[in-house]
């Protein structure tokens, strides 16, 4: 994948497949050049056995269709820069009220193999457009500032108007573009 924002789009697909109602996406850039990307969800989660399979590239292949090659792909991208990926998960069988998955990827953004962050606005507007019933919480911070987008907050204002209404999507794009211009 050419952009970090495409890895995010891909990893979030797993959260959607896992039936998540709330998905958090965060990007944190640090002074020392490290960048942490985190996707958290309240989906069905994975038991320990599945979790171990997910982390092994090529082991999952096509028999575990739910996961696919997305995670090994992300692991490769992070490790190429000297970073790493950590996945924690609580499956719904064991954790009835508190299940979900957290994928954390650390990158060294100064490494030559670090993919550019890319068009994050495109990733977010696509996710919201195609999943209007899921709540997304997005947060991006860097040493110079931070921005956030919370669909729950928007929903409170919008009432019955769905998040994927063209005018609302336009607002999301403009809002994020404006926020990014000050980051």
């Amino acid at each position: 994948m050419k952009e970090l924002s495409l890895y995010i789009l891909d990893i979030v697909q797993n959260s959607i497949t896992a039936g998540a109602k709330n998905i958090g996406i965060s990007i944190t850039e640090y002074d020392n050049g490290m960048l942490q990307m985190k996707v958290t969800d309240d989906g069905c989660g994975m038991d320990e056995e599945t979790l171990n399979q997910v982390k092994k590239p090529f082991y999952t292949s096509r028999t575990t269709r739910k996961v696919g090659l997305g995670v090994p792909y992300l692991i490769m991208a992070a490790e190429q820069t000297g970073g790493r990926v950590v996945i924690n998960s609580r499956d719904q069988e064991q954790y009835i009220d508190d299940h979900g998955t957290e994928v954390t990827a650390d990158f060294n953004s100064r490494h030559i193999d670090f993919p550019p962050i890319g068009d994050i606005i495109s990733t977010l507007s696509l996710l919201i457009h195609t999943n209007p019933n899921i709540d997304f919480y997005f947060h991006h911070s860097s040493p110079t500032g931070s921005l956030k987008l919370e669909t729950k907050e928007m929903r409170q204002v919008l009432g019955d108007v769905p998040l994927n209404t063209p005018e609302v999507l336009e607002w999301i794009k403009d809002y994020l573009t404006e926020q990014y211009s000050t980051l």
Binding site: E153, M154, V157, L158, G159, V161, T165, E167, V168, W171
Partner: peptide
């Protein structure tokens, strides 16, 4: 967010 009220 106030602009969303108008959209609504």
């Amino acid at each position: 967010l106030a602009e969303l009220v108008e959209i609504r």
